[in-house]
């Protein structure tokens, strides 16, 4: 049984069947890519995993426990972190503060009232945050106002915020969209390194096939809300159905 088990999930928006009978099993310590044309329901699927949406039917098990009915922060505390398609960061805060918040969440849980000692004095957490920033090559930007950064930087910051939590499952929604080529390659290297060093499972939605084939152990192709095929990258590459449904148009 995989660390993430999605069974018969359906989700409708009014008349639109965004997800239809989705079954997905993600094995522990693998990178599982989900690809498919725009509007296929990829982001909707992630929304059902993190508590943003509740599926109409079906079940989602993480580590053997159901995530359905739990709030987003509870799901995150179970070990799932997510990078969004459009960067979600704390725009009014500095880069370093953005990093400190997940550090606190990891150490102190969903709520702890420490209103007296200064953030400055949390040396241990600060070191963690700085080390992670260093890993994404953003240490020099630590005091920047995060809203004023480029889209690519915001993305990298968001990824660093998720990684510093040391999640069991990392969900990435088009993490390299809007990044320069060099940064994309850095991101691939970073994810490879993380994957080697840590026990982490990654589910990644990505349009950039270079990224997908560099990282993925398995690939699921989603079209119109339903999984078309699931296989290894080698087999997917040559799969006629996939060529037709997806790769054909983008290559």
């Amino acid at each position: 049984m995989g660390i993430l088990e999605v069974k018969d999930v359906n989700k409708r928006f009014g008349g639109l069947q965004a997800l239809g009978d989705v079954n997905l099993s993600v094995q522990e310590n693998t990178v599982h890519a989900i690809i498919g044309p725009n509007g296929a329901g990829k982001s909707t699927l992630l929304n059902c995993l993190v508590g943003k949406l509740i599926p109409d039917t079906g079940s989602v098990l993480f580590d053997g426990q159901s995530v359905l009915g739990r709030t987003p922060h509870e799901i995150n505390q179970m070990g799932i972190s997510r990078v969004f398609q459009t960067p979600e960061i704390f725009g009014d805060l500095t880069v370093m503060e953005n990093m400190m918040i997940p550090c606190f969440a990891r150490r102190d849980g969903a709520f702890r009232l420490h209103a007296i000692e200064a953030v400055e004095n949390e040396a241990e957490l600060r070191d963690q945050a700085e080390a992670m920033l260093d890993d994404v090559n953003m240490l020099d930007k630590r005091n920047m106002h995060s809203a004023s950064m480029s889209r690519g930087d915001k993305r990298r910051l968001e990824m660093a915020m998720c990684l510093v939590q040391n999640p069991k499952l990392l969900l990435l929604d088009e993490p390299t969209a809007g990044m320069a080529r060099a940064d994309t390659n850095n991101t691939i290297d970073l994810l490879k390194e993380i994957k080697e060093k840590r026990d982490i499972t990654i589910a990644i939605i990505e349009h950039d096939m270079h990224v997908v084939f560099s990282l993925a152990d398995r690939i699921t192709v989603l079209a119109q809300g339903t999984p078309l095929v699931e296989d290894t990258p080698e087999n997917i590459k040559g799969h006629p159905k996939v060529q037709e449904a997806y790769l054909g148009e983008s290559h």
């Binding site: 987003p72 922060h73 995150n76 918040i101 969440a105």
Partner: peptide, 12 residues
């Protein structure tokens, strides 16, 4: 700044 992000960062 961003209540949604806070939620998905495991904070209530």
């Amino acid at each position: 700044s961003n209540q949604q992000r806070l939620n998905y960062t495991g904070l209530n």
